[in-house]
Amino acid sequence: MWRSYGRGATEITAVRGVTGQVNPGQRIALTGESGSGKTTLLHLLAGLDVPTSGAVTWPGLGLRGDRPVGIGVVFQAPSLLPALDVTDNVALPLLLAEVPPDEARRRAQDALDQLGLGALRAAAPDELSGGQGQRVAIARVLAGEPALVLADEPTGQLDHRTAEHVLDVLLAAVDALGAALVVSTHDPAVADRLDERWSMTDGLLGEPVGQGRLR
């Protein structure tokens, strides 16, 4: 699987010849320095991006159009819509999946309650701290009940304690869903809490390292 950006002389190859497989319930840490291609690989896995060559298939998931259903993504950057309150933000993917509005809101509030964010349900995103924002983003994934959760540096911009807490929340949510999880990170502390480590360097994927921490 290849993905190139740009054109002409400045073309950058972000992911080169990556092959891998994510199985149900698997917890994978995608590690590597900044710019090693982690984000691109996650976007490819999420179906948000299309490989220049090669293919990504999701045998266990349905398709809606050309995009897979049942994948939740926690983005590196703040990804809450500033124009919507917390509940609407969490409900939005459900609405887009044509869940009736009332049910979507109910599931959104359940997800928020589950992550201890019930008090923030009417808050605006720009009233949230960084950690709260990421937890809401995780609630948004949880509400969608995905089979695969992809998280791109979910704690990259958080202080240590907050990061710890966000990671707890993420793992608990994935547990509750029984979903597979891929987290990209350059923080060894994060990688240590997952079962398997895929390390990337300059767009190349190293051999998976299992840590034997099966639960």
Binding site: A46, L48, R64, G65, R67, V69, V73, F75, S79, L80, L81, P82, A83, L92, P93, L96, A97, R140
Partner: peptide
């Protein structure tokens, strides 16, 4: 000015029509 918003909507699974 809000192109990021639209990018997020797409990334969250919105079809073009949505």
């Amino acid at each position: 000015e809000r192109r990021r918003t639209f990018a997020v909507i797409r990334a969250l699974g919105a079809r073009p029509r949505q």
